[in-house]
Design a protein around this nucleic acid. Sequence first.
DNA 1: AGCCTATGCAGCC
DNA 2: TGGCTGCCCTAGGC
Length: 550
Amino acid sequence: MAPQTRNQFPKVVIERDSDSEPSSSEEEEEDQEEEEVVESENGERKEEALDEKKKGKAPITISLKKVCKVCKKAGHEAGFKGATYIDCPMKPCFLCKMPGHTTVTCPHRVATEHGVIPAPRRNTSNPLEYVFERQLRPGILPIKPAFIIPDRVNCAVIRYHSRRVTCLEFHPKNNNILLSGDKKGQVGVWDFAKVHEKIVYGNVHSCIVNNMRFKPMNDDSIYAASSDGTISCTDLETGISLSLMNLNPDGWQGPSSWRMLYGMDVNSEKGLVLVADNFGFLYLVDTRSNNKTGEAILIHKKGSKVVGLHCNPVQPDLLLSCGNDHFARIWDMRRMEAGSSLYNLAHKRVVNSAYFSPLSGSKILTTSQDNRLRIWDSIFGNLESPSREIVHSHDFNRHLTPFKAEWDPKDPSESLAVIGRYISENYNGAALHPIDFIDISTGRLVAEVMDPNITTISPVNKLHPRDDVLATGSSRSLFIWRPKEESEPAEQKDETKIIVCGRAEKKRSRKSGDKSDDDSDDDKFTSKGSKFKSSKPKWKLTGCSNKVKR
DNA sequence: AGCCTATGCAGCC
DNA sequence: TGGCTGCCCTAGGC
């Protein structure tokens, strides 16, 4: 099956604020040439060589032996051809991990259904399930309303953070405030309605911010868990941060003792912040006294990282954890002790995230590094095996923030999830990594959302709790997506507002190494990173500087 | 344009 | 258990 070019980009072209672009006719010619090349490569290569000879081009012994960049063996090639990635046939499929075929011919890719492996429906006589079916199920809409997909970039801050974005959080009340944490330990507060209003607090943590949660009863403050081993509580107005817990009071004593905090959630009923570390332990912090309560509890394999914690939205006693020991585990908060989990949900690889469904709390959605999403339809039903597995490309890569499938908190049917895609696809000659909306009740790919300007992978995504808005963290940039307005001729309505921050971290020309008062260059945001021609990015760019407050 | 690097996990011994 | 090695689509600086 030949790789296909998919999707036409809407001509949502606004305006350029510069005349220094190369003339368009030139570019178009180049575009055509490139297309020819791509086409010929889809066909027979030998013919191509013959053609070359006919044309009289010097056939300098470009050895006919093709050497694969991936496995180094001769006879075939792998890697990018234009915007299409050709797999090495010697490796198992990059998507589903099964041998015998490559990604291009993977059944999970060819099928629009994205590949669902249904689990056998077992009859259970579990009384809890009966209660669930009687009492909770009627509250969940049997007919799904049409999904509304935010599929158009409304505004963005390019290179907002100085390192890649690791987590996002919407403000619980103020609809236009987005928080973002980064790998360097900084926290951004952005008002995306007043696009220019934004700040980055530089002194919150000393390395990766792994999770943020708003403080219940005081939505001016956030908790953050970091790989520096501390939980912070930061005032969003002032940026003043206090540390609730420090697991490395003696500083760096080597990697075998350095504790990092990953999973975090707040249980407001119990007045607790729950955090877990890279050695398998859970810690509880009282939100009133800001002090650790009780002893650390081993909740995953000793020495393994616990990457996610989630409190059930309707049953405050239920906790869900997941981690590098390939398990997601369900706990009863009333009796937390090592080995006392209610259920252990097995995965083939590391579990990047595990979330209860946002409204009923009765479903579980997990993202695992084996390129599969797993869904358990009812926590009161049979939990021995997932109800469905959905093959989806979200491989682990040490340089990327781990992918996490996130529920749409507004979907009354609790069936829409969003997750970034790792593998790229050829969209009009550009290799782009879309953000996928998946109906987890069927495995159907509802929408793949992308923009020719975003050439980087988007592992961090969050759907707005009230509005039809998607926030994306991709590399160091943030994007806000809204639904395309059908009624308007997309042409001019609603300019896409893009703010481009400093080109890069400033050289430490000044003693402090701080760049807070520098004016950063307003350079173009183009798809510079892309090796491929793409539809021309034509967003109007607004230059500005990025304030980092320390 | 092309090299370099940060640094997570798995699999091997 | 621990140390070492290798890794299929990174991103961005130099």
